[in-house]
Simulated scan of single mutants.
Amino acid sequence: MSGDALCVGVCMIDWDTGVCLGCGRTAEEIEGVPVVAPAPAAGGAPPLPANVAEQLGEGSD
């Protein structure tokens, strides 16, 4: 599995968050179940994260 490069040898799932405390992946990601990427917003590209927008600006239409 190509995602094994992320493994640090500490496999312990925090069942409250569903994330491995070692590598930060979910159980589904560790097992190789494909994770569907979120669909783009109906208005086109999704908005920039706030920290990026502060540095770059929102752009122009």
Rank of each mutant, 00 (worst) to 15 (best):
G57N: 05
V35K: 09
G22H: 01
E54I: 00
P47L: 04
D61T: 14
M1D: 08
V10Q: 06
S60C: 01
G44S: 06
V36R: 12
A37Q: 13
G24K: 09
A41Q: 12
L6M: 15
S2I: 14
I13K: 12
L48G: 11
A39L: 08
C7W: 00
C23E: 04
A41F: 13
V8C: 04
E28V: 07
R25P: 10
G18R: 02
E29P: 00
R25V: 03
C7G: 01
A50Q: 12
P38T: 08
S60I: 03
E31H: 05
V33L: 02
V33I: 08
V52N: 14
V33T: 02
N51Q: 11
L21I: 04
W15N: 07
E54F: 01
C11G: 10
P47S: 06
A45M: 11
A41P: 10
C11P: 11
V36C: 11
I13A: 12
I30F: 10
A5Y: 12
M12W: 07
V19S: 05
C7N: 00
G9C: 02
A27W: 05
G44L: 05
T26H: 05
D16E: 08
A42L: 06
G44K: 05
V35L: 03
N51P: 08
A5F: 12
T26D: 10
R25M: 03
E29T: 02
V19W: 08
I30K: 08
P34G: 00
D61L: 15
I30W: 07
V35T: 04
C7S: 00
T17F: 03
N51I: 14
A41T: 09
R25W: 05
E29S: 02
V8D: 06
V36S: 14
A53D: 06
A39F: 06
T26Y: 05
Q55M: 15
A27R: 07
A37K: 13
G32R: 09
L48R: 13
V35G: 00
G24Y: 05
G18V: 02
A41C: 13
L6K: 15
V33S: 01
A53I: 06
E54C: 01
V33R: 05
V35H: 02
V52H: 13
A37T: 14
C7H: 00
M1K: 12
P40N: 10
V35P: 01
V52S: 14
E31T: 07
P40H: 07
V33P: 02
G59P: 04
Q55R: 15
P38M: 04
P38Y: 03
D14Y: 04
A45H: 11
P40V: 03
V35S: 02
E31K: 09
C20N: 11
G57R: 01
G22C: 00
P46K: 13
G43N: 09
